[in-house]
Design a binder for these strands. Structure first.
Lengths: 219, 219
DNA sequence: ACCTGAACACCGTTCAAGT
DNA sequence: ACCTGAACACCGTTCAAGT
């Protein structure tokens, strides 16, 4: 008779814990990401987690930084407008793949290495393109506001879509009270995520146009 | 001997519970907003709360809607650009007063009456100003993305400021690795919230300019 | 009707113990 | 060194009981 099966030793590492945490959050949502469930995902008992990570706070910081690590870092040798557009689309895609990330980012106080490196790359692109310090500050604030704000709206929209369709939502509310929202739903403008997604490209070009004007104004 | 002091009856109501929940979250943060602490804030035992509210979910939905109720609703009889600017500033101020609101909005699925009425008012202003359905969809998506995204950044920035200053943060990281971020910190661009706040007005005007161009393009 | 106390199934985390 | 079991102080919530 062999010894009873037991989780093999040295099978766990900080990186693996973080990877499994991301996987669990993607699959089941942030609410299910508990130390106990994470341990299950790693095939280990809850207390084993604490040998690779100081606690839940560190895990949350780490999975946020893991999302930033997936995002394209803009390059100084390319045209700044295309590089920042590519970065912006990449942010939106990453936040779409990990819908829990945005809510988490907001509450975290300790930015990780990938987070800092991403900011650094964006600032470097703007400064290298000749944006003054003032212009860079405004430009980065406006671009990031648009990108993260758009992702925020998509996250909220996706959550409403989960149970009832937008149609049902609108029908459930007083049509006399909210005629414009009804118009939007019936005209299929908000019907699916695709129509809304089209606004991202439109908005991105408008914001990049605005950055060009900023570059000139704060020279 | 009088009867032992007891919390007077009929002192509680749904509105009072919601008001106290907002007050508690403002003062101590979302993490402290538990049913037990909320009961204490209302001068009552935990289980009394459940007589006025179905559970914590309803409380969270209600305090988000309470924040929307504080925000200026744009009017159709004013110039659309000024009305939307005033709305945008009011959103930013409200989210500044209640830093927990943004994180909560994101996860909620049931928009309240004040939330819906706010959306309706914005859509009405745009449509009345002659924006086509397409133009309205893009315009509202872009403007809201900017406003909420900016508030998101301010919330994050405020959280970092709480413990260490930005200076300390930058000194703690590798200067050779993040020279542009160091430049920003030393040049005082991110020094305080005020410098960053200036970007809001700059960005708002740029976005409103963009809406005017949208109005023409999607006529 | 409104409020309460005790209990249940969860959480993150500490600490002493096993291999 | 890595993993575990039992225990502690918390959650939200149910249910039966008091006034």
């Amino acid at each position: 008779m062999s010894t009873p099966t037991r989780a093999p030793r040295n099978t766990l590492s900080r990186d693996l814990v973080v990877e499994r945490a991301v996987r669990l959050a993607d699959r089941e949502g942030l609410g299910v990401l508990t130390i106990r469930a994470l341990a299950g995902e790693c095939g280990v008992k809850p207390m084993a987690i604490y040998h690779h990570v100081s606690g839940k706070e560190e895990i949350l910081d780490a999975i946020v930084d893991a999302v930033f690590a997936e995002i394209y870092a803009p390059q100084v040798d390319g045209p700044w407008r295309e590089e920042l557009a590519r970065r912006s689309r990449s942010v939106r895609e990453a936040l779409g793949r990990h819908p829990w990330a945005l809510a988490l980012m907001e509450a975290r106080r300790n930015p990780g290495l990938a987070t800092l490196a991403g900011h650094e790359a964006c600032l470097e692109v703007l400064r290298s393109a000749g944006f003054s310090l003032q212009a860079t500050a405004h430009a980065y604030a406006v671009l990031d506001a648009f990108v993260y704000g758009f992702a925020l709206q998509e996250t909220m929209l996706a959550q409403v879509d989960l149970d009832g369709s937008v149609d049902e939502l609108v029908e459930s509310m007083d049509l006399a009270r909210f005629p414009r929202m009804h118009e939007f739903a019936t005209e299929h403008v908000l019907q699916d995520g695709y129509a809304f997604a089209a606004s991202f490209e439109v908005g991105l070009e408008l914001v990049l146009d605005a950055l060009e004007r900023l570059q000139a104004a704060f020279a």
